[in-house]
């Protein structure tokens, strides 16, 4: 939170600029079936609406991240923040510092479930899902159990057993890698259709060929896609996936992985600090490297600045309170 920002005279509430899907999935709360309503009544009388921002685990870092959950559908949305240094908004007749732009996009919940399945696999046995998806740090994770077609999803990453009509699941690395390969492939396809310049070595090739755009190779696409998917899985699995896909040893210039190397799950504080350092470092690299596409720069930025700024949702009240006293 930007300290001191809120305390000027006439200071008003922080305004968040959001881009959300313009689809029924986001709005159509009137379609709330009885089951969802029942769920609301049963599971938490405290919920006030179908849409809420909740803190759940970031399946890559293991730290907390903000998601948007539509309880009615139900559907999970990922929130990412685009932040560029030295920007601000004029919003109608007001000014808003920071210039943040938030994105809410539908998220595959299996990435989050996978985090818990891998964790639970230390027990080495088949377990019912509600026993797997438990989290003292992020108790909202139980919301995930309400998502539709979980059984179908889980088939991608688990072995299952059915005893007395109850399903028990066990993480399967083999199946997960197959699933992730498909994810990488469909992401690659999107990179190509969106014409995103993925050249990992754009910088150096540019010096020689002078034509960085045409230098994008299949390998660059797959590395880039692997990097994007790696943002949603633990580091170990990302490495395994890299081997599974027979990718070359990741060069330092692959846009996403470097930040992950410093994010050791058992050292949250230090990892966080490194994380920030990488942010600034990336920013500088990005600025110098004019050959990177806008998308790359922005994505690098989006991915890395997200968690921090997003925390202002939850941090604000506390900070304000202290400020007022």
């Amino acid at each position: 939170m930007a300290a001191g920002v809120d305390c000027g005279e006439g200071a008003s509430a922080r305004q968040h600029v959001f881009l959300v899907p313009d689809t029924a999935c986001f709005y159509r709360l009137t379609d709330c079936g009885n089951s969802a309503l029942e769920y609301l009544k049963d599971a938490s009388k405290k919920m006030k609406s179908g849409l809420m921002f909740v803190k759940l685990v970031n399946p890559c870092s293991g730290e907390g991240a903000i998601y948007l959950f539509n309880v009615c559908l139900p559907q999970l949305f990922e929130i990412k923040v685009f932040k560029e240094k030295n920007h601000s908004w004029f919003i109608n007749e007001s000014v808003q510092s920071g210039g943040l732009l938030h994105f809410a996009t539908p998220m595959d919940p299996l990435f989050l479930l996978l985090h818990y399945l891998i964790k639970a696999d230390r027990e080495g046995k088949f377990q019912p899902l509600e026993q797997v998806v438990m989290d003292d740090m992020f108790p909202n994770c139980i919301l995930l159990l309400k998502l539709p077609e979980l059984e179908k999803l889980l088939r991608h990453v688990t072995e299952e057993k059915e005893i007395d009509k109850k399903k028990y699941y066990k993480y399967s690395k083999e199946k997960t890698l197959k699933w992730l390969e498909k994810k990488v492939n469909q992401t690659m396809a999107a990179l190509k259709t969106n014409n995103i310049n993925v050249g990992a070595r754009v910088q150096s090739t540019a010096f020689f060929s002078g034509d960085p755009v045409s230098s994008d190779k299949e390998e660059d696409y797959i590395c880039y896609a692997h990097g994007l998917i790696s943002d949603y899985i633990p580091k170990e699995l990302s490495d395994d996936l890299s081997k599974y896909l027979k990718l070359p040893e990741p060069p330092a210039s692959v846009p996403n992985p470097p930040s992950k190397k410093v994010k050791l799950s058992d050292e949250p504080v230090e990892a966080k600090e490194d994380y920030t350092k990488f942010n600034t470092k990336d920013l500088k690299t990005v600025k110098k490297n004019s050959k990177m596409t806008a998308a790359q720069k922005a994505l690098a930025k989006v991915d890395k600045s997200g968690m921090k700024s997003i925390d202002s949702f939850f941090g604000a009240k506390h900070v304000k309170k202290i400020g007022k006293i």
């Binding site: 990412k80 994105f103 699933w179 994007l228 998308a295 790359q296 930025k301």
Partner: peptide, 25 residues
């Protein structure tokens, strides 16, 4: 066209590709 924010605006279509369910075997 090289403004960073323009790049960021392509994120939702990329996110869609990342998060669309993959077909079963």
């Amino acid at each position: 066209p090289d403004a960073k924010v323009r790049g960021a605006l392509t994120w939702p279509s990329l996110a869609a590709a990342i998060h669309t369910q993959v077909p079963e075997d």
